[in-house]
Amino acid sequence: MRLTTRTNLAMRTLMFCAANPDQIVRKREVALACNASENHLAQVIHLLAQQGYLRTVRGRAGGLMLGRSPDRISVGEVFRQFEAGLPFAECFAGEECNCPLVGSCRLKSALTSALDAFYGKLDTITVADLMRDNTDLNSLLKVA
């Protein structure tokens, strides 16, 4: 399994904002710290803001900050938001599935159970958990 770049950038952005609480940070600062394209990051920020994970501020002194407390942002919830549109395997693609085995194969059931366990574990982890007592990460993401 491999996460999409968007999901990875979403988590990096949320951690960056969590490392700079009660502070408006700029997209450029996040992009530099996370080694990301500002254009790609802009799309991710937009989606995070739509879902209420971020609050954006327009204008010259604008930027972004967490839209809710980091202890109320579940990693599993974020992953679902960003990964939901992509079928894990062809048999999850509904009408677009062309696999001739789909009617009798048990792999989909096994994968469904595994994905449920994966997301279930991530549901127990918050952005605050990722940041708590993580001096190295906080140092890397702190705006001077």
Rank of each mutant, 00 (worst) to 15 (best):
R58T: 02
F16L: 07
P21C: 11
G63R: 09
E95G: 14
L54Y: 08
A18S: 15
L9H: 13
S104E: 11
R26Y: 04
V102M: 02
V57C: 00
C17L: 10
T5A: 12
G67P: 05
K121L: 13
M1W: 06
G76Y: 04
Q43P: 06
V102A: 10
N134W: 05
C99I: 03
T56C: 04
V57W: 01
S113M: 05
S109Q: 14
M131E: 05
H46S: 15
A114C: 12
A61P: 01
V30Q: 00
G62D: 03
L54D: 13
E77P: 04
A114I: 10
A84K: 02
A49M: 11
L3T: 09
N98I: 07
L140H: 11
L32N: 11
G63C: 11
A36Y: 13
A114N: 12
R106I: 06
G62L: 01
Y119W: 09
L115P: 00
K121F: 14
T13I: 00
R55V: 08
E29Q: 11
A128K: 11
G103R: 10
R2K: 12
N39T: 14
Q23W: 08
A61Y: 05
A18D: 12
V25F: 00
V57E: 04
E83K: 09
D123W: 01
R60M: 00
G103W: 08
M11G: 03
T7N: 11
M1P: 11
F16Y: 14
Q50I: 14
I125N: 02
G103H: 11
N20R: 01
E95V: 06
Q81I: 02
V57R: 01
L130A: 08
L86W: 03
A93I: 04
N138R: 03
L140P: 02
C105Y: 06
M1T: 07
F82T: 06
F16P: 04
N39G: 15
L86P: 01
L54S: 08
Q43S: 15
G63Y: 09
E77H: 14
M15H: 00
L86T: 12
A36V: 09
A49L: 08
R2W: 13
G120E: 10
P70W: 15
S109M: 07
P70N: 12
K108L: 15
Q50M: 15
R132L: 08
T124W: 05
T126M: 06
N138T: 06
T13Q: 01
L32P: 02
V143W: 00
E29K: 05
M11R: 00
Y53M: 13
K108Q: 14
L66M: 12
S74C: 13
M15L: 13
E90C: 08
G63S: 13
V44L: 03
D22G: 12
A42H: 14
G59L: 04
S37F: 07
L115A: 02
F118Q: 05
H46Y: 10
M15I: 03
R68K: 08
F79L: 07
L140I: 03
E83M: 11
A144S: 09
S69F: 01
